[in-house]
Amino acid sequence: MVDNNPSRQLRVFVVALVTLGLSACAAQPPSTGMYWGNYETSLYTLANSPTDRVSQQHIGNLRNVVSVSDQRGWAPPPGAMLELAVLEAEAGNQAAYVELVIREYRLYPESRVYIHRWFPDVVVPPMPTPSTSPEQATDDNQAQEALDADTNANQ
């Protein structure tokens, strides 16, 4: 019963390995991915020993987080664009500031109250054509309003 033919054994091994790899891929949940790069490290360093050099590193890391996410077709992680927006404004890059705030507003409906309150100088223009995100946002806002109404009624 023992197959001593080395080429057959190799074939069995290769097929098993490929099957293992493919089934591992199939078993993974669909992931859109999230890229934070070295964000945590520079945020910590900024808190621990803030210097101009560290501040520049942090803004560089945040720019990298956004650009790598874009290259991979992933959404930049929550909050990253707002944080970068403020640092861009401090560096004098007003256009980048406005663009980043608007992107966060449209991408993450949860950010809207925060942006209205803490970024009152940014006026978000209406979307020219309805797309997935704003529709989703509208749905989310309606769900939020409905829930708030429920919560208030129960309090």
Binding site: M34, W36, L43, A47, P78, G79, A80, V86, Y114
Partner: peptide
């Protein structure tokens, strides 16, 4: 500084830490 990233990975919208 160590809290935001793992919470976003758990799937939540987390308001920006530094701000």
């Amino acid at each position: 500084t160590s809290l935001a990233v793992p919470l976003t990975r758990a799937g939540f919208y987390v308001f920006p830490s530094l701000l």
